[in-house]
Computed example of a mutant assay.
Amino acid sequence: MNYSQVLNELETLVNETFGLWEHNRVGFQWRHYTWNHTMRVRATSMELGRREGGDVKLLEVAGTLHDITKRYDGDFKTDDEGKRVFTPDGFWLNEPLTPAGQNIVTELYNKHNLHGKVHHESGAVITENVLAMYDFEPDFVEAATAVVFAHLKPTNLTEENFKLLYNRVENQILYDADTMDPNVGYTGFFRNIHIHAYFALQRGNFDLEDYVRNLPRWIDSKQEFVDKLLTESSRELAQGRQDRNQQLFLQMVDELDDMEINRKYGLLGIIEYFVSENEDPHFLNQLDHLTNKWLPQRKQWLAEEEKDASARDRAQAAIDRVDDFLTLMTRESRGEI
Protein backbone atom coordinates (compact mmCIF):
# COMPACT_ATOMS: atom_id res chain seq x y z
CA MET A 1 0.00 0.00 0.00
CA ASN A 2 1.26 3.46 -0.91
CA TYR A 3 0.50 5.23 2.36
CA SER A 4 1.09 8.76 1.04
CA GLN A 5 -1.34 8.15 -1.79
CA VAL A 6 -3.93 6.68 0.56
CA LEU A 7 -3.61 9.62 2.95
CA ASN A 8 -4.05 12.03 0.05
CA GLU A 9 -7.18 10.14 -1.03
CA LEU A 10 -8.57 10.30 2.51
CA GLU A 11 -7.92 14.05 2.67
CA THR A 12 -9.64 14.52 -0.69
CA LEU A 13 -12.61 12.46 0.48
CA VAL A 14 -12.99 14.47 3.69
CA ASN A 15 -12.72 17.81 1.89
CA GLU A 16 -15.14 16.65 -0.80
CA THR A 17 -17.60 15.50 1.87
CA PHE A 18 -17.50 18.83 3.69
CA GLY A 19 -18.39 20.52 0.40
CA LEU A 20 -21.59 18.53 -0.15
CA TRP A 21 -23.72 20.90 1.95
CA GLU A 22 -24.97 24.19 0.52
CA HIS A 23 -25.43 25.99 3.84
CA ASN A 24 -22.61 28.10 5.24
CA ARG A 25 -23.10 28.79 8.95
CA VAL A 26 -24.75 26.69 11.63
CA GLY A 27 -24.27 27.85 15.20
CA PHE A 28 -20.55 28.29 15.83
CA GLN A 29 -19.49 26.43 12.68
CA TRP A 30 -19.07 27.66 9.12
CA ARG A 31 -18.20 26.05 5.80
CA HIS A 32 -14.42 26.48 5.83
CA TYR A 33 -14.02 26.09 9.58
CA THR A 34 -14.45 22.32 9.65
CA TRP A 35 -11.67 21.52 7.16
CA ASN A 36 -9.18 23.92 8.74
CA HIS A 37 -10.07 22.61 12.21
CA THR A 38 -9.53 19.04 11.00
CA MET A 39 -6.05 19.79 9.68
CA ARG A 40 -5.02 21.67 12.83
CA VAL A 41 -6.32 18.91 15.11
CA ARG A 42 -4.47 16.32 13.06
CA ALA A 43 -1.21 18.28 13.26
CA THR A 44 -1.55 18.84 17.00
CA SER A 45 -2.45 15.23 17.71
CA MET A 46 0.59 14.04 15.74
CA GLU A 47 2.87 16.35 17.73
CA LEU A 48 1.32 15.15 20.98
CA GLY A 49 1.74 11.58 19.77
CA ARG A 50 5.46 12.16 19.32
CA ARG A 51 5.70 13.64 22.82
CA GLU A 52 3.64 10.89 24.46
CA GLY A 53 5.13 7.96 22.54
CA GLY A 54 1.90 7.29 20.64
CA ASP A 55 1.32 5.87 17.17
CA VAL A 56 1.70 8.96 14.99
CA LYS A 57 0.47 7.23 11.83
CA LEU A 58 -2.68 6.13 13.64
CA LEU A 59 -3.24 9.69 14.83
CA GLU A 60 -2.67 11.04 11.32
CA VAL A 61 -5.36 8.80 9.86
CA ALA A 62 -7.84 9.20 12.73
CA GLY A 63 -7.23 12.95 12.83
CA THR A 64 -8.02 13.20 9.13
CA LEU A 65 -11.32 11.36 9.52
CA HIS A 66 -12.50 12.38 12.98
CA ASP A 67 -15.06 15.02 11.88
CA ILE A 68 -16.06 13.48 8.56
CA THR A 69 -19.78 13.51 9.47
CA LYS A 70 -19.74 16.85 11.30
CA ARG A 71 -21.52 18.72 8.51
CA TYR A 72 -24.65 16.65 9.14
CA ASP A 73 -25.05 18.63 12.39
CA GLY A 74 -27.66 21.38 12.17
CA ASP A 75 -29.00 23.61 14.91
CA PHE A 76 -29.29 22.24 18.43
CA LYS A 77 -32.35 20.07 18.91
CA THR A 78 -34.73 21.46 21.54
CA ASP A 79 -37.75 20.14 23.41
CA ASP A 80 -41.20 21.72 23.71
CA GLU A 81 -39.87 24.13 26.35
CA GLY A 82 -37.01 25.28 24.13
CA LYS A 83 -34.35 23.44 26.14
CA ARG A 84 -31.54 21.57 24.42
CA VAL A 85 -31.97 17.82 24.07
CA PHE A 86 -29.13 15.60 25.31
CA THR A 87 -28.19 11.97 24.76
CA PRO A 88 -27.86 9.69 27.81
CA ASP A 89 -24.08 10.32 27.57
CA GLY A 90 -24.59 14.07 27.89
CA PHE A 91 -24.00 15.06 24.25
CA TRP A 92 -26.11 17.76 22.61
CA LEU A 93 -28.32 16.47 19.83
CA ASN A 94 -28.55 18.40 16.58
CA GLU A 95 -31.20 18.67 13.94
CA PRO A 96 -29.93 16.75 10.90
CA LEU A 97 -28.87 18.61 7.77
CA THR A 98 -29.25 16.85 4.44
CA PRO A 99 -26.36 17.22 1.98
CA ALA A 100 -27.08 18.59 -1.48
CA GLY A 101 -24.71 16.08 -3.09
CA GLN A 102 -23.76 12.45 -2.62
CA ASN A 103 -20.56 10.43 -2.34
CA ILE A 104 -19.36 7.24 -0.69
CA VAL A 105 -19.61 8.82 2.77
CA THR A 106 -23.26 9.79 2.36
CA GLU A 107 -23.98 6.34 0.91
CA LEU A 108 -22.43 4.68 3.95
CA TYR A 109 -24.23 7.11 6.25
CA ASN A 110 -27.57 6.07 4.78
CA LYS A 111 -26.68 2.39 4.56
CA HIS A 112 -25.83 2.20 8.26
CA ASN A 113 -28.77 4.41 9.29
CA LEU A 114 -26.60 6.94 11.08
CA HIS A 115 -29.20 9.71 11.07
CA GLY A 116 -29.56 11.18 14.54
CA LYS A 117 -26.23 9.82 15.78
CA VAL A 118 -23.71 12.19 17.35
CA HIS A 119 -20.86 12.78 14.92
CA HIS A 120 -18.21 10.90 16.91
CA GLU A 121 -20.36 7.77 16.67
CA SER A 122 -21.35 8.16 13.03
CA GLY A 123 -17.79 9.20 12.19
CA ALA A 124 -16.42 6.03 13.77
CA VAL A 125 -18.70 3.89 11.59
CA ILE A 126 -17.62 5.79 8.47
CA THR A 127 -13.96 5.48 9.50
CA GLU A 128 -14.24 1.72 9.91
CA ASN A 129 -15.91 1.26 6.54
CA VAL A 130 -13.70 3.65 4.58
CA LEU A 131 -10.44 2.24 5.94
CA ALA A 132 -11.66 -1.28 5.18
CA MET A 133 -11.49 -0.32 1.49
CA TYR A 134 -7.70 -0.07 1.77
CA ASP A 135 -4.97 -2.52 2.77
CA PHE A 136 -4.75 -1.46 6.40
CA GLU A 137 -4.35 -4.24 8.93
CA PRO A 138 -7.62 -5.09 10.74
CA ASP A 139 -6.07 -4.11 14.08
CA PHE A 140 -5.18 -0.68 12.66
CA VAL A 141 -8.72 -0.14 11.36
CA GLU A 142 -10.15 -1.15 14.73
CA ALA A 143 -7.78 1.20 16.55
CA ALA A 144 -8.51 4.15 14.24
CA THR A 145 -12.24 3.58 14.66
CA ALA A 146 -11.82 3.63 18.45
CA VAL A 147 -9.74 6.82 18.34
CA VAL A 148 -12.39 8.63 16.28
CA PHE A 149 -15.15 7.40 18.59
CA ALA A 150 -13.26 8.67 21.65
CA HIS A 151 -12.66 12.21 20.36
CA LEU A 152 -15.79 13.31 22.24
CA LYS A 153 -15.94 12.41 25.93
CA PRO A 154 -19.23 11.60 27.69
CA THR A 155 -19.97 13.81 30.67
CA ASN A 156 -20.99 10.96 32.96
CA LEU A 157 -18.18 8.43 32.54
CA THR A 158 -17.55 6.05 35.40
CA GLU A 159 -13.93 5.29 36.23
CA GLU A 160 -14.33 1.84 34.72
CA ASN A 161 -15.83 3.14 31.47
CA PHE A 162 -13.18 5.86 31.27
CA LYS A 163 -10.48 3.19 31.32
CA LEU A 164 -12.27 1.28 28.57
CA LEU A 165 -12.81 4.32 26.33
CA TYR A 166 -9.36 5.84 26.85
CA ASN A 167 -7.30 2.69 27.22
CA ARG A 168 -4.97 3.86 24.44
CA VAL A 169 -2.97 7.06 24.63
CA GLU A 170 -4.02 7.86 21.05
CA ASN A 171 -7.67 7.99 22.16
CA GLN A 172 -6.70 10.50 24.84
CA ILE A 173 -4.57 12.55 22.46
CA LEU A 174 -7.19 13.08 19.76
CA TYR A 175 -9.71 14.10 22.41
CA ASP A 176 -7.19 16.58 23.81
CA ALA A 177 -6.25 18.04 20.42
CA ASP A 178 -9.88 18.39 19.39
CA THR A 179 -10.70 20.13 22.68
CA MET A 180 -7.74 22.50 22.51
CA ASP A 181 -8.11 23.80 18.98
CA PRO A 182 -11.38 25.77 19.31
CA ASN A 183 -10.82 26.85 22.90
CA VAL A 184 -7.26 27.95 23.70
CA GLY A 185 -4.44 29.80 22.01
CA TYR A 186 -4.46 31.86 18.86
CA THR A 187 -6.53 29.25 17.01
CA GLY A 188 -9.17 29.66 19.71
CA PHE A 189 -8.89 33.44 19.43
CA PHE A 190 -9.42 33.19 15.66
CA ARG A 191 -12.64 31.24 16.22
CA ASN A 192 -13.78 33.57 19.00
CA ILE A 193 -13.35 36.77 17.01
CA HIS A 194 -15.18 35.34 14.02
CA ILE A 195 -18.08 34.07 16.14
CA HIS A 196 -18.31 37.29 18.15
CA ALA A 197 -18.00 39.56 15.13
CA TYR A 198 -20.51 37.62 13.06
CA PHE A 199 -23.25 37.85 15.67
CA ALA A 200 -22.35 41.44 16.60
CA LEU A 201 -22.70 42.49 12.96
CA GLN A 202 -25.99 40.63 12.75
CA ARG A 203 -27.16 42.86 15.58
CA GLY A 204 -25.82 45.89 13.74
CA ASN A 205 -22.40 46.85 15.14
CA PHE A 206 -19.01 45.48 16.20
CA ASP A 207 -17.40 47.52 18.99
CA LEU A 208 -13.62 47.05 18.81
CA GLU A 209 -12.78 48.48 22.22
CA ASP A 210 -15.57 46.60 23.96
CA TYR A 211 -14.43 43.35 22.37
CA VAL A 212 -10.83 43.82 23.50
CA ARG A 213 -11.69 44.83 27.05
CA ASN A 214 -13.94 41.79 27.47
CA LEU A 215 -11.40 39.24 26.23
CA PRO A 216 -10.30 38.20 29.77
CA ARG A 217 -13.75 36.80 30.47
CA TRP A 218 -13.45 34.49 27.46
CA ILE A 219 -9.81 33.58 28.16
CA ASP A 220 -10.43 32.81 31.83
CA SER A 221 -13.42 30.62 30.98
CA LYS A 222 -11.10 28.29 29.03
CA GLN A 223 -8.77 27.42 31.90
CA GLU A 224 -11.12 24.61 32.90
CA PHE A 225 -10.58 22.99 29.49
CA VAL A 226 -6.81 23.09 29.99
CA ASP A 227 -6.92 21.57 33.46
CA LYS A 228 -9.14 18.67 32.38
CA LEU A 229 -7.10 17.50 29.39
CA LEU A 230 -6.07 13.87 29.61
CA THR A 231 -2.32 13.81 28.91
CA GLU A 232 0.50 15.72 30.52
CA SER A 233 1.85 16.87 27.15
CA SER A 234 -1.57 18.24 26.21
CA ARG A 235 -1.92 20.18 29.44
CA GLU A 236 1.56 21.63 28.98
CA LEU A 237 0.88 22.62 25.36
CA ALA A 238 -2.54 24.05 26.17
CA GLN A 239 -1.25 26.06 29.14
CA GLY A 240 1.32 27.65 26.86
CA ARG A 241 -1.47 28.63 24.48
CA GLN A 242 -3.58 29.95 27.34
CA ASP A 243 -0.66 32.04 28.59
CA ARG A 244 -0.14 33.44 25.08
CA ASN A 245 -3.76 34.56 24.97
CA GLN A 246 -3.32 36.34 28.28
CA GLN A 247 -0.28 38.14 26.87
CA LEU A 248 -2.17 38.90 23.65
CA PHE A 249 -4.89 40.62 25.65
CA LEU A 250 -2.34 42.77 27.49
CA GLN A 251 -0.83 43.84 24.17
CA MET A 252 -4.22 44.63 22.67
CA VAL A 253 -5.50 46.60 25.62
CA ASP A 254 -2.29 48.66 25.57
CA GLU A 255 -2.86 49.33 21.87
CA LEU A 256 -6.18 51.00 22.71
CA ASP A 257 -4.19 53.97 24.04
CA ASP A 258 -2.89 54.66 20.52
CA MET A 259 -5.85 53.66 18.36
CA GLU A 260 -4.92 55.47 15.16
CA ILE A 261 -1.50 53.86 14.81
CA ASN A 262 -2.55 50.43 16.03
CA ARG A 263 -5.66 50.15 13.88
CA LYS A 264 -3.41 50.85 10.91
CA TYR A 265 -0.34 48.80 11.85
CA GLY A 266 -1.06 46.71 14.93
CA LEU A 267 -3.06 43.91 16.46
CA LEU A 268 -6.17 46.10 16.45
CA GLY A 269 -5.82 46.19 12.68
CA ILE A 270 -5.67 42.39 12.66
CA ILE A 271 -8.98 42.27 14.53
CA GLU A 272 -10.55 44.69 12.07
CA TYR A 273 -9.31 42.60 9.14
CA PHE A 274 -10.91 39.48 10.64
CA VAL A 275 -14.17 41.38 11.18
CA SER A 276 -14.16 42.57 7.57
CA GLU A 277 -13.78 38.98 6.25
CA ASN A 278 -16.34 37.28 8.44
CA GLU A 279 -18.92 35.53 6.27
CA ASP A 280 -16.99 32.30 5.62
CA PRO A 281 -13.47 32.79 7.00
CA HIS A 282 -10.80 30.38 5.80
CA PHE A 283 -8.08 30.14 8.44
CA LEU A 284 -5.19 29.26 6.14
CA ASN A 285 -6.19 31.78 3.49
CA GLN A 286 -6.54 34.58 6.02
CA LEU A 287 -3.24 33.68 7.66
CA ASP A 288 -1.58 33.67 4.24
CA HIS A 289 -3.12 37.06 3.36
CA LEU A 290 -1.98 38.62 6.62
CA THR A 291 1.54 37.23 6.30
CA ASN A 292 2.17 37.85 2.62
CA LYS A 293 0.02 40.89 1.79
CA TRP A 294 -1.29 42.74 4.84
CA LEU A 295 2.00 42.85 6.76
CA PRO A 296 4.27 43.72 3.79
CA GLN A 297 1.86 46.50 2.85
CA ARG A 298 2.16 47.99 6.35
CA LYS A 299 5.93 47.80 6.17
CA GLN A 300 5.78 49.70 2.89
CA TRP A 301 3.45 52.31 4.40
CA LEU A 302 5.86 52.75 7.29
CA ALA A 303 8.78 53.32 4.93
CA GLU A 304 6.91 55.70 2.62
CA GLU A 305 4.29 57.54 4.67
CA GLU A 306 5.29 58.00 8.29
CA LYS A 307 7.44 61.14 8.56
CA ASP A 308 7.15 61.79 12.29
CA ALA A 309 9.84 59.97 14.29
CA SER A 310 7.52 59.10 17.17
CA ALA A 311 4.85 57.76 14.82
CA ARG A 312 7.47 55.67 13.00
CA ASP A 313 8.68 54.13 16.25
CA ARG A 314 5.15 53.32 17.41
CA ALA A 315 4.22 51.91 14.02
CA GLN A 316 7.35 49.74 13.95
CA ALA A 317 6.55 48.38 17.41
CA ALA A 318 3.01 47.59 16.24
CA ILE A 319 4.33 45.79 13.15
CA ASP A 320 6.70 43.78 15.34
CA ARG A 321 3.78 42.66 17.51
CA VAL A 322 1.83 41.57 14.43
CA ASP A 323 4.84 39.75 13.02
CA ASP A 324 5.22 37.84 16.27
CA PHE A 325 1.48 37.10 16.41
CA LEU A 326 1.44 35.65 12.89
CA THR A 327 4.54 33.55 13.52
CA LEU A 328 3.05 32.07 16.67
CA MET A 329 -0.34 31.49 15.04
CA THR A 330 1.38 29.62 12.20
CA ARG A 331 3.28 27.44 14.65
CA GLU A 332 0.12 26.71 16.63
CA SER A 333 -1.70 25.67 13.47
CA ARG A 334 1.09 23.18 12.79
CA GLY A 335 0.81 21.78 16.30
CA GLU A 336 4.34 22.86 17.20
CA ILE A 337 3.46 25.00 20.22
Rank of each mutant, 00 (worst) to 15 (best):
V130Q: 07
R168H: 11
P138I: 09
V118I: 13
A146N: 04
K111D: 10
V105W: 08
Y166K: 10
E232Q: 06
N156F: 15
F140N: 03
E159R: 13
G185A: 05
V125S: 00
I193F: 07
V148G: 02
F206Q: 14
N129E: 15
G188A: 08
G188V: 00
G188T: 00
N214D: 10
K228W: 02
N161A: 07
D227P: 02
H119M: 11
K153I: 02
E209L: 13
Q202T: 10
H120M: 06
F190E: 00
V125Y: 00
A124Q: 00
R168D: 09
G101W: 10
H119G: 03
H151N: 02
H194G: 09
V212W: 04
Q172L: 12
P138Y: 14
Y175K: 04
T127I: 03
Y166Q: 10
D135M: 10
G123W: 00
D135S: 10
E170F: 14
H196R: 09
F149L: 15
T127H: 02
E224P: 01
R191F: 05
Q202G: 05
N205D: 15
S221E: 02
P182D: 01
K163I: 03
A144Y: 13
P216H: 07
N110F: 05
D220P: 06
N205W: 12
T187C: 06
T155C: 04
V130C: 12
F136D: 08
R191H: 15
A143G: 04
N171I: 09
F149W: 08
L215N: 01
E232S: 13
Y198L: 12
E128N: 15
R203T: 14
V141P: 08
L131D: 07
N171E: 15
D207H: 12
Q239E: 10
E159V: 04
L157N: 03
E236H: 14
L108C: 09
A200H: 12
I126A: 07
P138L: 08
P99H: 07
A143W: 11
V105C: 13
S233Y: 11
H151W: 03
D227A: 04
P182V: 00
F149C: 04
A143C: 07
I193V: 15
G116P: 06
H151Y: 04
D220K: 14
F225S: 01
H120S: 13
N192D: 08
T231A: 06
E209P: 06
L174A: 07
H194T: 11
A177N: 01
H151C: 07
L208C: 06
N129L: 14
D181W: 01
K153W: 01
Q102K: 13
D135K: 13
S233I: 09
N113I: 08
W218K: 01
N167I: 12
A150D: 00
L215G: 01
E160C: 05
F162R: 10
F206C: 12
T145D: 01
D178L: 04
Q102R: 15
T179G: 00
R203V: 10
L215M: 15
V212C: 02
S122W: 04
F149V: 03
D139P: 06
A144I: 02
V169N: 11
F190H: 02
A200Q: 11
Y211N: 04
N167A: 09
N183R: 02
I219P: 01
F162G: 03
D220A: 11
L229S: 02
G204Q: 14
